[in-house]
């Protein structure tokens, strides 16, 4: 059966994921070492050890994401996170920075290493470089590839691949995160904070909902309509009028919708993908329980050659609509 890798932002969400049938749960420490460094979220050291024990007792595994890029002079924080994840009994750590990966490979030779989506390794040469240089065992592919491209990659690499099947369409590649850094002065890649809540303001202005990031208006929707979170890479932009056409307003980089690749699971299985990943460490235990239950049923159906269940999770998706993302289209 394909492995289901599920998010947990809190110990309660970890337990919900395991109880709902997750094979694997990924989580992070409550600091800048992981890419979902949000208020009230993540694990203390004792919580991590308890979470690993809870999962192990029920036959599940825990991966610790230490997937931001260490700042010069501050590497000790990231080194300590790797050591503590190892000490807590994590099945593997998910890393992105080549320096940190080299450190982990040298210092913890028996620790299993996964390459984070943040490393944006999207071709066989890059992936093989990480595998050969550092003994990386699994790569999480960025959400910019088609199923055909994933098939081609798997033909040319020897390590496992993990792909996102559900949740926020967070590409973390092609420079998108720089938009958030520019608007807030805090970096998704370095500080683990994309469009941080501290810079977000929701307001009702003249009967309409407005969502701002760092003072910039990102979304405006009619009252009563869904309000997307003001993530800049999924924001609404207005391009000024030019000689050739009028001003245009729209989602230039990405629509504020979620990924749902349920229907593609059988094709991903045939493409040689080992593990399916669900995004959403910032979501609640209710979300985790519902999504994990639905996807556990889907991977079991795929294993049995049965059709994929459809449309179960529409309510949980951002903007309440979903896309199969890059998997089934060519990249814009």
């Amino acid at each position: 059966m394909m492995e289901l890798v599920c998010p947990a932002g809190t110990p309660a969400a970890l337990r919900a994921a395991v109880d709902a049938g997750a094979h694997t749960v990924y989580c992070g420490f409550a600091d800048e070492t992981n890419a979902r460094n949000f208020p009230g979220l993540n694990f203390s050291r004792p919580e991590m050890a308890e979470g690993v024990a809870y999962a192990k007792a029920r036959g599940a595994r825990v991966l610790v994401a230490i997937n931001t890029f260490p700042r010069a002079g501050e590497q000790a924080l990231w080194h300590r996170a790797v050591a503590d994840a190892h000490g807590a009994g994590a099945h593997a750590v998910i890393l992105a920075d080549p320096g940190l990966i080299a450190h982990a490979a040298d210092t913890h030779p028996d620790l299993r290493l996964h390459l984070s989506v943040q490393a944006a390794a999207a071709n066989p040469d890059a992936i093989n470089f990480y595998a050969e240089s550092f003994g990386i065992r699994r790569v999480v592919l960025p959400r910019v590839l088609t199923v055909e491209e994933i098939t081609a990659i798997n033909r040319e690499i020897d390590i496992e691949t993990e792909v996102f099947v559900f949740g926020g369409l967070c590409v973390m590649a092609e420079g998108r995160c720089s938009l958030s850094s520019w608007a807030t002065g805090l970096s998704p890649n370095m500080n683990g904070v994309c469009s941080p809540a501290s810079h977000v303001v929701y307001d009702e202005v003249a009967g309409q909902n407005e969502a701002r990031l760092g003072g910039l208006l990102i979304h405006r929707t009619p009252k009563g309509a869904p309000v997307p979170y003001p993530t800049l890479c999924k924001g609404c932009f207005t391009a000024p009028a030019t000689d050739t056409g009028p001003a245009q307003t729209g989602h230039i980089f990405e629509d504020p919708v979620s990924l749902d690749a349920t229907e593609l699971i059988p094709r991903l299985q045939r493409a040689g993908v080992t593990a399916l990943k669900i995004e959403g460490r910032q979501r609640s235990r209710a979300y985790v329980a519902q999504v994990v239950r639905a996807f556990r049923a889907a991977v079991e159906a795929a294993e049995a050659g049965a059709p994929m269940p459809a449309g179960l999770l529409a309510k949980l998706t951002e903007g309440q609509s979903a896309t199969t993302g890059a998997y089934a289209k060519t990249w814009r």
Partner: peptide
């Protein structure tokens, strides 16, 4: 834990300021 806070928020059932 029967509904997700973000989902309630995306759908406008909860509003924050």
């Amino acid at each position: 834990g029967s509904e997700d806070g973000d989902a309630l928020f995306f759908s406008g059932e909860l509003a924050i300021a």
